[in-house]
Design a protein around this nucleic acid. Structure first.
Length: 836
RNA sequence: GGGAGUAUGGCGGAACUGGUAGACGCGCCGGAUUCAAAAUCCGGUCACUUCGGUGGUGUGGGUUCGAUUCCCUCUACUCCUACCA
């Protein structure tokens, strides 16, 4: 495509000018109201992708707009720089992960610079830098001393391909989230953070996050998984010991017909020690899907029913009971729990209904294959009979507590955060193990515990445990031999506090409380929905933990959250089932073919991914069309929260628009007119400007884009219709430059300077336009709710005058011929509805 | 199984607290320009129509003077989660 507008020259020119004048350096004027815009920082994988372009464009619109609205804006950028890919690359490229990482940062930074983002690069951080991670080592020590970080033997998810421990959340359908390998179970001593201590606060504070998408709050709430129930002790018959169970349905206790333990329950393990059959059963359970087959092992033990004298319940070990939830033991009430019912039917256990639906007689109520889990009235339950479920719960818990056989209990699914990773390229955990067995934190003065400087990098380098020189040390206090903790932090550790560091990124402390008080919380955080649970929950926890450690008094880090949609693209597959890149496809008389002339079918529209070969490289787009075109396309059409479909025609349209904007500059040069000012146009344009403002504040950038098109179309119409004075044209271009600035900043500056300004457009104020009240109102005339005609009336006209005008209309007269008007409705400025 | 959400032209999507459905962009059709094409510009573009109108926002119903918008039913799709007792 050819054009006189040279985006390469123009965009570079403005980027240089912004840089030269330090335009995006964060204002330190604390008298101004602050606004903190943050996009989720990228992992330096090598090159930016379209997801980044979308994310950072959205953030940049907000940052530039708020700045023009007079806020002092913090808009920083950095790098989530630790992680596994660096190790993998280091092995194949025989480089140190550090070298690979910094090289990628350099490349990606230059790409971000080309996008013309209003970022304060003086606050750039990389989490792999010792000056960054030394602070989080200190946090960890504080947490360790406060009992928030602890070590425990835990069964972990072992990824045999990546040779690392994975968090529960990193296992998807039993496979590693990166490698896709089947995950094995392995026991290791691990570091944990006590996030569970904050379960209740993390849950209840969600209510205060009014600027978060409801979807995310629901996901976090489900993840925390609060449930209210009871702990009940069942005494083993003929023994003094008890089995403790957790239940959310204590009201169904009279319907209990068995107890079931997890295969990993202490008692199960105890019994299995000298029981070969049970050992075999437990082994079998590992490969049995409890969803399809509910299997149990009869222990031969019985417990006494706590409320029915003489009644004994058999104790089973069952494959469907989880060790990790509650107490790893349940009582089975088959009539009111589908899983229990399936199990009871398999082993011919009693089914005793204790809740009946309101509308069915007790004598007619039967349970067959379907458990009754809804509310109803309690039956067959002694002192609970006749109560509704909720009331019965309260009463039975009261009794349980009175008899001292249990208590009310609130249970959470949320488990402590395992932060140990057996990797090299991560932040070392600052702990030493002394030869006398003591586990002690590294002295603060010894921080940071830096990663070893390796010459080469190979298979054995992938864990610090394999580097004896680094591992062996001495205790500085006692001189005793010691060895270092060789685990590194989960990389979510770094991303849990980076938004604090931006407040003063070169400070010797992690941050200054004064700065946190001013800048935090983040006003607008923008990123992908994939971080809905982990990153956002960990960050919320970290904030609360640091607060309790005395660092500041902040409760929540992110006031506003926006989750953007994915960037998608059509996929193509040839007849041999191979994915084909769009650029390798040719159109042969309507038949799509690949490079080897094999027929290609169009597939589904999917998220851009290397494996589906439907990726468009932002670099190519920016170099052939420019950053403004790319940004404009990202903002057009699709609402930001929805998926954005990449199309060639879409990017071409954006390019066309940017060129059209440039045409205005050309037309303005030497523009001569004797026209009087076009007040109607100016009023219309002012109205549009205010609407654009509203749309930006509501995060509806696609609507802003549509309004800008209208502004431009109005201007164009007036221009070609010769209805524009010099003053109008100059005013319009000035306003145009301002409204374009957040979206397409380069062409905006170009327009701004070409109409004779020596200032920068980014430094202008975005003012609210005073719009004159319209005197003429357009009113739709309806008959029985169907619009028949649109008329203009004077605003000052009374209802009676409007109605008589309406009835004078020839068209309406015709419609009313021979009919009686039953009712007349007038909504000022909107409609007249005549009911006949 | 549980939870959340979506459904409007050929396509992406507009329509403020119920009040002119289809803004804006793409595509398509016609025209101008051109030796021709691309690019550009102008006009048209929900469907049916006897050109008076009539129908139309996934389905069926309801509330209302009036429903894309509120309520109920069903259907389809998307996402999250999953034996959580």
């Amino acid at each position: 495509m050819s054009s006189r507008y040279n985006h390469k020259v123009v965009e570079k020119k403005w980027q240089d000018i912004w840089a030269k004048h330090n335009v995006f350096k964060t204002s330190t004027d604390t008298k101004k109201e602050k606004y903190y815009v943050l996009e989720m920082f990228p992992y330096p994988s090598g090159r930016i992708h379209m997801g980044h372009v979308r994310n950072y464009t959205l953030g940049d619109v907000v940052a530039r707009y708020k700045r023009m609205k007079g806020y002092s804006v913090l808009h920083p950028m950095g790098w989530d720089a630790f992680g596994l890919p660096a190790e993998n690359a280091a092995m194949t490229e025989n480089k140190h992960p550090e070298e690979w990482t910094y090289q990628n940062i350099k490349t990606m930074k230059s790409q971000l610079l080309q996008m013309g983002l209003s970022l304060d690069w003086e606050r750039e951080i990389a989490t792999c830098h010792p000056e960054y991670y030394k602070h989080e080592q200190k946090f960890f020590i504080d947490m360790f001393n406060a009992g928030l970080a602890y070590k425990k033997e835990a069964e972990v998810n072992w990824d045999p391909v990546d040779k690392t421990v994975l968090a529960n959340e990193q296992v998807i359908d039993g496979r590693g989230w990166r490698s896709g390998a089947l995950v094995e179970k392995k026991k290791l001593s691990q570091w944990f953070l006590k996030i569970s201590k904050y379960s209740e606060e993390l849950l209840s504070d969600l209510d205060h996050l009014t600027n978060w998408p409801n979807k995310v709050k629901v996901m976090q709430s489900n993840w925390i998984g609060k449930s209210i129930g009871a702990e009940i002790n069942f005494k083993l018959s003929n023994q003094e010991s008890f089995i403790k169970v957790f239940t959310t349905r204590p009201d169904t206790i009279f319907g209990a017909t068995f107890l079931a333990l997890s295969t990993k329950h202490e008692l199960s393990i105890d019994i299995s020690k000298d029981n070969k059959v049970l050992q075999k059963f437990i082994k079998e359970c590992e490969s049995l899907n409890p969803d399809k087959n509910k299997k149990g092992f009869d222990t031969g033990l019985f417990v006494n029913h706590p409320f029915i004298k003489g009644k004994k319940l058999p104790v089973y070990i069952a494959n469907f009971v989880l060790k990790e939830y509650g107490l790893g033991a349940i009582f089975g009430c088959p009539a009111h729990d589908q899983r229990d019912l399936d199990f009871a039917n398999e082993y011919n256990l009693d089914v005793i209904p204790v809740v009946k639906p309101n509308n069915i007689k007790e004598s007619e109520f039967k349970i067959k294959d379907e458990a009754f889990t809804e509310d109803g009235l309690i039956i067959n339950s002694d002192f609970l009979n006749g109560l509704v479920v909720e009331k019965a719960k309260d009463k039975i818990i009261e009794q349980i507590e009175k008899l001292k056989i249990g208590k009310k209990k609130i249970n959470y699914k949320l488990r402590d955060w395992g932060i140990s990773r057996q990797r090299f390229w991560g932040c070392p955990i600052p702990i030493i193990y002394r030869e006398d067995g003591e586990i002690i934190a590294v002295e603060e003065s010894e921080l940071p515990v830096k990663l070893p400087d390796l010459k080469g990098f190979n298979e054995t380098s992938t864990a610090l445990n394999n580097i004896p020189d680094w591992k062996e040390t001495v205790c500085p206090k006692t001189g005793l031999k010691a060895y270092r903790e060789t685990d590194t932090f989960d990389t979510f550790f770094e991303s849990s506090w980076y938004y604090f560091r931006y407040c003063n990124a070169r400070l010797d402390k992690p941050f200054d409380k004064k700065d946190i008080d001013y800048w935090l919380p983040v006003d607008q955080y923008i990123g992908g929905i994939e971080h809905a649970i982990l990153h956002l929950l960990y960050s919320r926890f970290f904030t609360k933990a640091l607060r309790d450690l005395g660092y500041f008094s902040l409760d929540e880090p992110f006031k506003g959250l926006f989750t953007q949609g994915m960037v998608t693209h059509k996929t193509y597959r040839n007849n041999e089932g191979e994915w084909i890149e769009p650029k390798d496809i040719s159109n042969d008389n309507g038949v799509l073919k690949d490079k080897n002339n094999i027929k290609v079918e169009t597939g589904k529209i999917e998220k851009m991914s290397k494996s589906k070969k439907n990726v468009i490289d932002p670099n190519d787009i920016i170099s052939s069309y420019g950053a403004d075109t790319a940004r404009w396309f990202m903002l057009s059409d699709s609402p930001p929260e929805r998926d954005l479909q990449w199309t060639d025609t879409g990017i071409a349209a954006s390019f066309k628009f940017i060129n059209k904007l440039f045409e205005f500059i050309e037309k303005f040069k030497g523009f001569d007119s004797k026209n009087i000012n076009n007040l109607e146009l100016v009023d219309k344009q002012k109205d549009i400007i205010n609407q654009i403002s509203e749309n930006i504040e509501a995060f509806q950038f696609n609507k802003s884009v549509a309004k800008i098109y209208e502004f431009v179309n109005n201007l164009n119409d007036a221009l070609s219709g010769n209805k524009l004075s010099y003053e109008d044209f100059s005013w319009s271009l000035k306003k145009l430059a301002i409204i374009l600035q957040p979206f397409v900043p380069h062409i905006s500056e170009e327009i701004w300077s070409n109409i004779g300004n020596s200032t920068l457009c980014i430094n202008q104020m975005w003012k609210k336009e005073g719009v004159k009240k319209k005197i003429k109102l357009k009113i739709a005339i309806q008959i029985n709710g169907k619009t028949k005609q649109i008329i203009e009336v004077d605003e000052s006209m009374s209802k009676e005058m409007v109605l008589s005008t309406v009835k004078d209309s020839e068209k309406i007269k015709k419609n009313l011929l021979g009919k009686n008007i039953i009712r007349e409705i007038y909504v000022p400025g909107k409609i007249v509805n005549l009911v006949i």
